[in-house]
C-alpha cells in the first residue's frame, strides 16, 4: 500500500485555522504532528517539542495512529498556567473522534480546549486602565 494522505486539503485548512485561532487566543505556539513515532511515542513527542522554536511557550500534540496514542507536551511557561490534569481531560475530548477514525474532529476539539486552558487569566484590578 502506498503512502497516502491522512487529511484532505479542506481538513488541513481547518486544522491550520484552528491552530491560528488558538495561538491568537492563548498567546502560545501550537503544533500538531500526526505520524509514526520512532520507538516510544512519549519520547518522540518530547523530541519534537524540544525541536520547535520556543519550546517553553509551546504546546505540541503528537498523534501516533499506529500506536493509537496521543501525546500532549506543554512547555515550562505553559505549565505554569495549565495543569497536567486539565490537559489530560482535554485529551479525552478527542478520544471518541479518534476511535471513529476522525482525526480532524479530534484535533480540532483538543486544540480548542487547550487554547481555552492556556488563555491568560485577566485580572480586572491590574489589567483595567
Amino acid at each position: 500500500m502506498s503512502a497516502g494522505n491522512a487529511f484532505t486539503p479542506i481538513e488541513r485548512h481547518e486544522i491550520d485555522r484552528a491552530i491560528r485561532d488558538a495561538e491568537r487566543l492563548s498567546g502560545r505556539d501550537f503544533y500538531a504532528h500526526v505520524g509514526r513515532s520512532a520507538g516510544d511515542s512519549r519520547r518522540t513527542a518530547l523530541a519534537l517539542h524540544s525541536a520547535v522554536a520556543q519550546p517553553a511557550s509551546s504546546i505540541l500534540i503528537h498523534v501516533d495512529p499506529t500506536q493509537r496514542s496521543v501525546e500532549i507536551v506543554t512547555g515550562a511557561d505553559v505549565r505554569e498556567t495549565v495543569d497536567d490534569r486539565h490537559v489530560a481531560l482535554a485529551g479525552l475530548s478527542m478520544q471518541t473522534a479518534f476511535e471513529a477514525g476522525d482525526f480532524t474532529r479530534g484535533l480540532l476539539a483538543v486544540i480548542q480546549q487547550l487554547a481555552e486552558l492556556a488563555r491568560p487569566v485577566r485580572n480586572l484590578h491590574t489589567d483595567t486602565p
Partner: peptide, 28 residues
C-alpha cells in the same frame, strides 16, 4: 508515562527528575 488502553494520565508528577515540560498521554 504510558498507561493501558483508553487510559489517560498526566505526566508531570511521575518523574521528579524530568525537565519542566508537562502534558498528558491518551490512548484510544
Amino acid at each position: 508515562t504510558h498507561t493501558g488502553a483508553h487510559a489517560v494520565r498526566g505526566t508531570s508528577a511521575e518523574d521528579p527528575s524530568r525537565d519542566q515540560t508537562g502534558g498528558a498521554s491518551v490512548r484510544w
